[in-house]
Measured scan of single mutants.
Amino acid sequence: ATVHVKGVTYHFDNPEQAEKFAKRMAKELNGEVHVDGNTWHVD
């Protein structure tokens, strides 16, 4: 799974980790999470 945060890409072997990371980053950055298959975007 892949997480894109403000133009930076993070790779996770575990999709659950990717989801938790994306949601945590969105919270910290006051952003929104969008999911597209195995790819998470934090804007």
Rank of each mutant, 00 (worst) to 15 (best):
Ala1Gln: 09
Ala1Ser: 11
Ala1His: 14
Ala1Asn: 08
Ala1Tyr: 15
Ala1Ile: 14
Ala1Lys: 05
Ala1Gly: 10
Ala1Thr: 09
Thr2Cys: 14
Thr2Ser: 11
Thr2Val: 12
Thr2Lys: 13
Val3Lys: 00
Val3Met: 01
Val3Phe: 01
Val3His: 00
Val3Glu: 00
Val3Thr: 01
Val3Ala: 03
His4Tyr: 13
His4Val: 15
His4Ser: 10
His4Phe: 12
His4Ala: 06
His4Gln: 11
Val5Asn: 02
Val5Glu: 00
Val5Pro: 00
Val5Phe: 06
Val5Gln: 01
Val5Leu: 08
Val5Trp: 04
Lys6Pro: 03
Lys6Met: 15
Lys6Tyr: 12
Lys6Glu: 10
Lys6Asn: 15
Lys6Asp: 14
Lys6Ile: 07
Lys6Arg: 13
Gly7Gln: 04
Gly7Met: 04
Gly7Glu: 05
Gly7Ser: 05
Gly7Tyr: 04
Gly7Asn: 07
Gly7Arg: 04
Val8Lys: 13
Val8Thr: 10
Val8Leu: 11
Val8Gln: 11
Val8Met: 12
Val8Asp: 07
Thr9Tyr: 13
Thr9Asp: 08
Thr9Asn: 07
Tyr10Val: 05
Tyr10Thr: 03
Tyr10Gln: 02
Tyr10Asp: 00
Tyr10Phe: 09
His11Asp: 05
His11Met: 08
His11Thr: 09
His11Gln: 08
His11Glu: 08
Phe12Lys: 00
Phe12Trp: 03
Phe12Glu: 00
Phe12Ser: 00
Phe12Ile: 01
Phe12Pro: 00
Phe12Gly: 00
Asp13Cys: 09
Asp13Ser: 11
Asp13Phe: 06
Asp13Lys: 09
Asp13Met: 08
Asp13Asn: 10
Asn14Pro: 01
Asn14Gln: 08
Asn14Met: 07
Asn14Leu: 09
Asn14Val: 07
Asn14His: 09
Asn14Glu: 10
Asn14Asp: 14
Pro15Arg: 12
Pro15Asn: 14
Pro15Val: 11
Pro15Met: 15
Glu16Met: 10
Glu16Gln: 11
Glu16Leu: 11
Glu16Ser: 10
Gln17Ser: 12
Gln17Ile: 09
Gln17Lys: 10
Gln17Pro: 04
Gln17Leu: 12
Gln17Trp: 07
Gln17Thr: 11
Ala18Val: 00
Ala18Pro: 00
Ala18Lys: 00
Ala18Trp: 00
Ala18Asp: 00
Ala18Ile: 00
Glu19Ser: 05
Glu19Leu: 06
Glu19Thr: 03
Lys20Ile: 14
Lys20Pro: 02
Lys20Val: 10
Lys20Cys: 06
Lys20Asp: 14
Lys20Gly: 08
Lys20Thr: 09
Lys20Tyr: 09
Lys20Asn: 12
Phe21Val: 04
Phe21Arg: 01
Phe21Gly: 01
Phe21Gln: 02
Phe21Asn: 02
Phe21Asp: 01
Ala22Arg: 01
Ala22Ile: 02
Ala22Thr: 02
Lys23Met: 13
Lys23Thr: 11
Lys23Gln: 13
Lys23Phe: 10
Lys23Leu: 12
Lys23Trp: 10
Lys23His: 13
Lys23Asp: 08
Lys23Val: 11
Arg24Cys: 10
Arg24Ile: 12
Arg24Gln: 15
Arg24Asn: 11
Arg24His: 13
Arg24Pro: 00
Arg24Tyr: 13
Arg24Gly: 08
Arg24Met: 14
Arg24Phe: 13
Met25Val: 09
Met25Tyr: 04
Met25His: 03
Met25Ile: 11
Met25Trp: 07
Met25Leu: 09
Met25Cys: 08
Ala26Lys: 03
Ala26Gly: 06
Ala26His: 02
Ala26Asp: 01
Ala26Tyr: 01
Lys27Thr: 09
Lys27Pro: 01
Lys27Phe: 12
Lys27Glu: 12
Lys27Tyr: 11
Lys27Cys: 08
Lys27Gly: 07
Lys27Gln: 12
Glu28Lys: 11
Glu28Pro: 01
Glu28Gly: 05
Glu28Leu: 13
Glu28Asn: 06
Leu29Phe: 07
Leu29Cys: 07
Leu29Ser: 05
Leu29Met: 09
Asn30Arg: 09
Asn30Phe: 07
Asn30Glu: 07
Asn30Ala: 07
Gly31Ala: 14
Gly31His: 04
Gly31Tyr: 10
Glu32Met: 14
Glu32Arg: 13
Glu32Cys: 15
Glu32Thr: 15
Glu32Gly: 07
Glu32Asn: 12
Glu32Val: 15
Val33Asp: 02
Val33Ser: 05
Val33Trp: 14
Val33Asn: 02
Val33Gln: 03
Val33Pro: 05
Val33Arg: 02
Val33Glu: 03
Val33Cys: 08
Val33Tyr: 14
Val33Thr: 07
Val33Ile: 13
His34Phe: 12
His34Trp: 14
His34Asn: 05
His34Leu: 06
His34Lys: 08
His34Val: 07
Val35Tyr: 13
Val35Gly: 09
Val35Met: 12
Val35Ser: 10
Val35Lys: 15
Asp36Leu: 11
Asp36Tyr: 10
Asp36Pro: 01
Asp36Arg: 09
Asp36Lys: 11
Asp36Gly: 04
Gly37Cys: 05
Gly37Thr: 03
Gly37Arg: 04
Gly37Glu: 05
Gly37Met: 04
Gly37Ala: 04
Gly37Lys: 06
Gly37Pro: 02
Gly37Asp: 05
Gly37Ile: 03
Gly37Phe: 03
Gly37Asn: 06
Asn38Arg: 06
Asn38Leu: 08
Asn38Phe: 10
Asn38Asp: 08
Asn38Ser: 07
Asn38Glu: 06
Thr39Ser: 15
Thr39Ile: 14
Thr39Met: 13
Thr39His: 15
Thr39Pro: 01
Thr39Ala: 15
Thr39Gln: 15
Trp40Val: 04
Trp40Ala: 02
Trp40Cys: 04
Trp40Thr: 03
Trp40Gly: 02
Trp40Lys: 02
Trp40Tyr: 14
His41Asp: 05
His41Tyr: 15
His41Ala: 05
His41Glu: 07
Val42Tyr: 01
Val42Glu: 02
Val42Ala: 02
Val42Phe: 03
Val42Met: 02
Val42Gly: 02
Val42His: 01
Val42Gln: 01
Asp43Lys: 09
Asp43His: 14
Asp43Gly: 11
Asp43Asn: 10
Asp43Arg: 09
